[in-house]
Amino acid sequence: MEDRLGILQADLEQFAEGRTIDPKYLFLLYPATEGVWEIRSLRPDPSIRVLGFFAKRDVFIATNLALRENLGGWESREWKDIKRLARTRWGHLFHTYNPMVSTNLSELVTGTIDGKYFKT
């Protein structure tokens, strides 16, 4: 797992370094009105999801992570629990500050390519 977490760190640095972002990497979780995003670290197995919010443009605050294999389908109890945990942690850290919530990705991130970043 130590090697896997090193790869996760490299995946997170992709965002920090301002590289091109696509929907395989960054995805807005349902419902979009909550503003919970996931960064996907897909390879190698196990796939890891890092949840968080945008504080301002190009500033993603990661709140928690989970192994994808433990989450089940996107409407499962496990997904609901990790999204709730993300919102709770944001509230504890920034209780007077709301995250940016938008489906217009250009308002949140520089350097995105066209694609579907959320479920409609």
Rank of each mutant, 00 (worst) to 15 (best):
M1N: 14
L5Y: 13
D81Y: 10
S102C: 05
S76M: 09
R89G: 05
R68K: 15
L26A: 12
T120I: 01
L28I: 05
Y25S: 02
R57W: 08
Y97D: 00
A86E: 03
R68E: 04
L8E: 05
W90V: 04
D22L: 04
G115T: 06
Q9I: 08
S76D: 02
I61K: 12
D81F: 13
G73Q: 14
S102L: 05
R84A: 15
G111D: 08
W79D: 05
D114W: 01
T112W: 11
A62V: 02
L42V: 08
M1I: 14
L8F: 07
R87V: 09
D58F: 13
E107F: 09
S41Q: 02
P44K: 09
S102V: 01
R68Q: 15
L71N: 10
R57L: 09
I113N: 06
D3S: 12
E38S: 12
R49T: 07
K119G: 00
I21R: 04
E17P: 00
A62T: 10
E69Q: 15
L65W: 13
W74I: 06
A86G: 06
L67W: 07
I21Y: 02
A10W: 04
W37P: 09
L28A: 05
T103V: 15
K56V: 09
S76T: 04
G6Y: 08
D45K: 14
W37C: 11
R19C: 10
M100N: 00
P44M: 04
D81A: 15
T20A: 11
R40Q: 02
E17C: 02
I39W: 13
K116C: 03
T112M: 12
D11N: 15
I7A: 11
R87T: 09
K56C: 13
G35I: 06
A10L: 12
G35M: 03
K24Q: 09
K80V: 10
I21E: 01
E78N: 15
P44Q: 07
E34D: 15
Q9E: 14
T112I: 15
S47G: 03
L71H: 14
T88K: 14
R77C: 07
D3Q: 13
I113T: 14
L71S: 11
L71Y: 14
T110E: 02
E107P: 01
F60Y: 11
E13F: 02
T110V: 09
I113P: 00
N64S: 11
V109E: 04
R4N: 10
A66T: 09
S47N: 02
L12V: 02
P23R: 06
R19N: 13
Y117T: 02
E75L: 09
R57P: 04
E13T: 01
T110F: 06
K83T: 01
G115C: 07
A32P: 00
P99H: 06
L51H: 12
R4D: 03
G72F: 15
L71I: 12
D81S: 15
R40E: 01
H95N: 10
R84I: 05
A66N: 06
T103G: 03
I7S: 04
E38Y: 00
E13A: 08
A55T: 00
I7E: 13
K116M: 04
L105A: 00
Y30M: 00
E78C: 11
E17K: 09
N70Y: 10
